[in-house]
Design a protein around this nucleic acid. Structure first.
Lengths: 241, 241
DNA sequence: CGCGTATTTGAGCATCATCAAGCGCCGTGG
DNA sequence: CCACGGCGCTTGATGATGCTCAAATACGCG
């Protein structure tokens, strides 16, 4: 594929990890990078897979899953545009990365990027802060998985996606902001895997929210959020103390 | 309290974060540090509390909890000797740190240590690797919380503690290793908070393991692990793929 | 010895999982 | 154009696991 893309017109240049790089190193990284498209459902190398690359998510949503032999699966993280995909400095705890929607990645070789992390203090700093944020997020989700009921889990999921999408759009699409419309990046079955529920339970809770007038579902993954406040009330005040 | 301790005879000098510091910086950090004892149950400043300090755990076990106003609580991490306590570069997601057992900490001021992280590449590198490891651990626990039943959760907990204690002891106490004896750092109620269960369920599952001859409980927190293999079998083969 | 706390044990119940249809959408092929 | 089949989602009926409420027991400590 011809290099029709540059960092200059990269959609996430101001939010991705590489924003921490000085121009010369950015240019060098660019020369070691390549873009890659993945259709929904496609397994991505990346985390500790053979393909062995790191990447920045340019568009789409990537899910990180953990599976047991008996078929039990848990999605442990969702990656959105500008998020970093990969596990530096270790083999990675048997995670699998998979495209949830159509995904575009900006990939670089593991060795090259690890070296860059080691030598570029700004990059290392940013990666550290990102990792700390991810740890916070993981712990929030631990609370959700351990302590929230089905209703709260589903409401939290919608709220989570709603906020991420809002943040991603920025001021771009005020129209759709007003319409409160979102497109869930996950199927029912994936949603269940993210929330520690079964697919039927997710479906029922969504119908309950619809019946309460809090959301409007138009079959499939598109929905309108009618009452954000109600969702927030169901989820409850995030933390205490 | 007089400075009767030095880094030279520190029990965790070879495993704690500060091992990454060159001698002069270590000496400087030492001058900014102080030791602190906490009885079991005592609230520690630390994570994003007013007291606002970072620390290395010297002995004992610290629990990190997240609470809701309605009393629901979830322990999101346990910290063992040589682990780092604190949340650099942010306010920390409303976590509370509490002494699970009697705890001894080596504390330093937030500002000083953050500055040290920024300026010492080795320290930053080690902290980054530690944080990535913690993230892996958090995701493992997410799977446990979302997908494992009560039996598996309790077995996983015992195994987890058993391994950490084994690792901590090192070769020190081969006798107790042979006896397979461990002292749980958590009460039943705390164990429940760690596993996303109720106290009664934890108790019942422990009795079930005892009835199966897998552990021997002598009332309270002391137990003998009779059959590690059985525990591993219950927990299941960690991951797949 | 008696009290307070932590743990165990029991009985009934709620929530969510499981099993099983049924439905709507969509692409394929007749 | 419509019949067909597949897939993802919904809906219903039933049941098991873990929660709730309640009480008994065990231990530590004054």
């Amino acid at each position: 594929m011809g290099r029709r893309h540059t960092c200059v017109d990269c959609a996430v240049k101001n939010s991705a990890l590489c924003r921490a790089l000085p121009a010369p190193q950015l240019a060098a990284l660019y020369r070691h990078s390549y873009r890659r498209h993945h259709p929904p459902g496609r397994l991505i190398g990346g985390v500790d897979h053979a393909e062995d690359c790191f990447a920045t998510v340019l568009s789409g949503v990537v899910k990180l899953t953990k599976s047991l032999a008996d078929g039990r699966r848990q999605i442990v993280a969702l990656l959105f545009p500008s998020d970093f995909l990969g596990r530096p400095f270790a083999a990675g705890g048997a995670l699998v990365a998979e495209a949830a929607t159509a995904v575009e990645l900006c990939c670089f070789s593991r060795e090259y990027f690890e070296e860059l992390i080691r030598n570029q203090p700004q990059l290392k700093q940013l990666l550290l802060e990102r990792t700390l944020d991810e740890l916070d997020a993981a712990r929030d989700w631990m609370f959700l998985l351990g302590r929230n009921n089905a209703q709260e889990k589903v409401a939290a999921f919608i709220l989570h996606i709603w906020r991420r999408m809002r943040a991603a759009d920025g001021d771009a699409r005020c129209a759709s902001v007003h319409q409160q419309q979102i497109d869930l990046p996950l199927s029912r079955s994936e949603t269940a895997e993210y929330l520690g529920l079964r697919i039927e339970t997710v479906s029922r809770q969504l119908q309950a929210l619809r019946a309460a007038g809090i959301i409007e579902t138009s079959h499939g993954r598109t929905m309108k959020v009618q009452d954000v406040r109600a969702l927030e009330r169901i989820v409850g005040p995030d933390p205490v103390r």
